[in-house]
Simulated assay, not measured.
Amino acid sequence: MKRSFYRSLLLSALGTSLLTGLASCNKDKDFGPDSTYSAEDNSDAEGADAATYEYVDANAPEDVNRGTSGTYAPAADLAAIGSGCATRSYDAATRTLTITFDPNGCTGRDGRVRRGQIVAVFSGQHRQAGSSVVISLVNYSVNGNAHAGTRTITYLGNGTYTLDVQAASVTTAQGVFTWASQRTYTQTAGQGTRTILDDEYSVTGSASGTNRKGVSFTATIQQPLKKVFQRGCARLFVSGTVEINTSKEKTLLLNYDPTGTEACDNIVSVTVNGRTRTIRIR
């Protein structure tokens, strides 16, 4: 499996698409503010999970039993992710990786400022079938918002792994939102090359939580999301559907392929209460 596999954690694009699409519909009574808050918080949750694992995957040791082992990701990828303001240490005796961000703030490639530490403990060789990584956060914040929670990645082999998120939370000036999620990532193309431009992934799973206004929500992938990494498609899904429910709103269904052609574009459809609208996501 290629070392650039960590970039497959682009499920955060799902959250961004949900937020943008719902914001466009916010003036419609069928797309009330509770759904918008839930989509926004779900977007932040997905982005946080993806970015956290990306740092761990890039900085993971090639050999968990050697303290002087190099990193799993190529140097160029590591430099791009670390932005020169995150330091790495690894203790082979406890198989513990610690990533420390500059206390004055470390701006990542996503434009967000991080402080604190990400700590990962490996059960076995990184990405080896049957091995897992448990990730915790220590005094960790993103853009001044405190983050907490435990993330467990389990490698199943053949390009498939699961991500289990428990007791996660983000504290903002508007309130605290919490979530738990279970996702399965499966690589379906591009395993035999180092480039990511021919990679494709299928993503399944669900999430649940409470948004910053105290409204509970669930987000469930109904049809697997398909991610294609060719140029121009990296931030978009070309097919798949997601259902979102909140405790105060009707069911919303987001369809990434309303034309049935798997086109690499930003056109999706949203169905609420039997009404369907076609919108563009940014």
Rank of each mutant, 00 (worst) to 15 (best):
N143H: 02
T16Y: 11
G67E: 08
E54D: 14
G232L: 02
Q223M: 09
L252K: 10
D265H: 08
V238G: 03
T71A: 12
T188L: 06
R115N: 12
D198I: 05
D28A: 14
D49G: 14
R88D: 03
V134N: 05
K226R: 14
D30M: 09
G105N: 03
V270P: 06
D34H: 15
I281G: 04
T68Y: 08
T241S: 13
K248T: 15
L11W: 10
Y53M: 14
F5V: 08
N59V: 05
Y37A: 09
T251S: 13
D41P: 00
H147N: 09
V215Y: 09
H126S: 01
N139Y: 04
T96Q: 04
R109D: 07
D30L: 15
T271R: 11
G47W: 09
T259H: 12
Q128Y: 02
C85Y: 05
G205L: 02
N59K: 03
V134H: 05
A39D: 08
F237K: 03
G84C: 02
G32Q: 13
G116R: 05
A58Q: 07
N255S: 05
E249T: 13
A51M: 12
Y155W: 13
S141E: 12
E40D: 14
P103N: 01
G116E: 05
K227E: 11
F31T: 01
S83Y: 02
T100W: 06
N26S: 13
S131F: 05
G260Y: 08
A189E: 14
S123V: 08
V242A: 09
Y155F: 15
I267C: 02
K250R: 14
T188Y: 04
Y155K: 05
T162H: 04
T184P: 12
T16I: 07
V121N: 04
V176A: 07
S83M: 11
V176Y: 09
N255E: 02
L11T: 13
A45R: 07
E46K: 06
V134L: 10
L10Y: 10
K226S: 11
R114N: 02
V133A: 01
I244S: 10
R231G: 02
Y140L: 08
G82D: 13
R277C: 03
R277N: 12
C85D: 04
Y55Q: 03
G240N: 06
T178C: 02
V268K: 01
A39G: 14
S208C: 04
I279G: 05
D28C: 10
V133P: 01
G116H: 01
P224K: 09
S208P: 00
R112P: 00
F5P: 00
G108T: 07
G144M: 03
Y55L: 10
S206C: 05
T98I: 06
F229I: 04
E262K: 10
R114S: 03
A93C: 01
R194F: 09
V119L: 10
S202E: 15
N245Y: 01
I267H: 11
G67N: 07
A23E: 15
S43A: 14
S239Q: 11
G214H: 07
N145S: 12
G149T: 02
S141W: 01
N26H: 11
D41I: 00
D91R: 06
M1C: 02
G32N: 15
T71R: 12
T152I: 13
V242N: 10
L156F: 04
Y185F: 13
R280W: 11
L253S: 10
I196C: 07
A60T: 00
